[in-house]
Amino acid sequence: MSLRLSTVILPVHRWHEGGRERWQRAEELGFHAAYTYDHLSWRSFRDGPWFGALPTLTAAATATERLRLGTLVTSPNFRHPVTLAKELISLDDVSGGRVTLGIGAGGNGFDATVLGQEPWTPRERADRFGEFLPLLDRLLTEDAVSHTGTHYSADEARNVPGCVQRPRLPFAVAATGPRGLKLAARYGQAWVTTGDPKLYEDGTPEQSVEALRGQVEKLGKACADTGRDVAELDKVLLTGFTPDRNGLLGSVEAFVDFAGRHQELGFTEIVVHWPIPDSDFAADQAVFEEIATEALGRLA
């Protein structure tokens, strides 16, 4: 499968002050998809502008025609499957069937406590995600759903007419642990990773590649255990969190080298962050656009 290139546009700009133009420019540059984070705030951006993911994606759907749109990623931190399903069906309709839901168990951070709850342990997160994802799958594929669970319930939740995409919009499941990978194998149309977080500070690019190779192998085993061909799943790498992140967008040549090494591991989509000055995602805009238009051609 040929490699696709996508971008993440963080929701930090007012729509009428540069927000709309970035999504339209992403389409003009030929990106396969443009995603955004589904958080209420995030790390170093907490004290600055930050807008909601699904309203932003709805606006982007009306401002573009071909670009796929999605979250990287939604989590149970502040979402409920019933309300999320209704919003996703509406977004899929507005976009004409161009939505991919990136979804994962979530992590610690502002979203984890903003509703007043204590942070969940890793096991609690896995338990919740293990109930959240199957229920969301049902809500997006069935007209009426009732469910009584440990963490989530639905009472005759109606979702007519359902998604434009059938049987539902695709899930891109972010996971590295055994329970999450099993969910990706069963429910995912794609799998998402950011690499090995233990290598973020002191790891090497070579160590990162080997860690990602191991993750891909574990995904293959989870698919085999589920009776599914791993080739059916797209493999998505969200960049910006691996040891070679700082030089990744420094030149077309550097990116082509990075992309080629990860394509060899089986990745089918690489996602880069739209540059934001004076942040962890700072990059030269001209080089970024050159990568968008030229890099994949040099890999062919």
Rank of each mutant, 00 (worst) to 15 (best):
G220T: 10
K235W: 01
V192N: 07
C223P: 11
D196P: 03
A231W: 00
R228E: 10
V209P: 01
D234K: 14
K218C: 09
L237V: 11
R213C: 01
C223S: 08
K218E: 14
Q215T: 13
P197I: 05
T193D: 07
L233S: 01
P197H: 03
K218Q: 15
Q207C: 09
K198C: 00
L219Q: 12
G203M: 10
K198F: 00
D234F: 00
E206T: 12
R213P: 05
T193G: 04
E232D: 15
L233F: 03
K198G: 10
A224E: 15
G227W: 01
S208Y: 01
D202W: 08
V236G: 14
V192D: 05
R213W: 00
K235V: 07
E210R: 13
L219I: 14
D229W: 03
E206M: 06
E232V: 07
D202G: 12
D225N: 13
D225T: 03
A231N: 04
L237W: 14
P197F: 02
E201W: 02
V236P: 11
D202C: 01
E201K: 12
K221S: 12
V216I: 13
R228K: 14
V209H: 13
G203V: 06
R228Y: 07
P205S: 10
L219D: 13
L212H: 13
Q215E: 14
E232N: 04
D225P: 00
L233Y: 05
G195V: 06
Q207S: 01
D234G: 15
K198L: 09
D229S: 15
G227A: 11
E232L: 11
P197T: 03
T194R: 09
D234A: 14
A222M: 04
E210Q: 13
R213I: 01
G214V: 02
T194P: 02
R213K: 10
Q215M: 11
G220L: 14
L233W: 00
V236N: 08
G214R: 12
E217G: 03
C223Y: 04
V230N: 00
R228S: 13
T193Y: 04
T194W: 08
E232G: 09
G214P: 11
S208I: 01
S208H: 07
V230P: 12
A231V: 09
G227P: 09
D225R: 15
L219C: 14
V236K: 11
A224P: 06
A211G: 14
T194L: 13
E232Y: 03
A231C: 06
R228P: 07
S208D: 12
E232Q: 13
Q215W: 05
A224H: 10
D229V: 03
E232K: 10
C223I: 09
G214M: 01
A222D: 08
V216Q: 09
L212P: 00
E201G: 02
K235S: 03
D202L: 12
P197Y: 02
T204K: 10
G214D: 13
K198A: 14
T204N: 11
G227N: 11
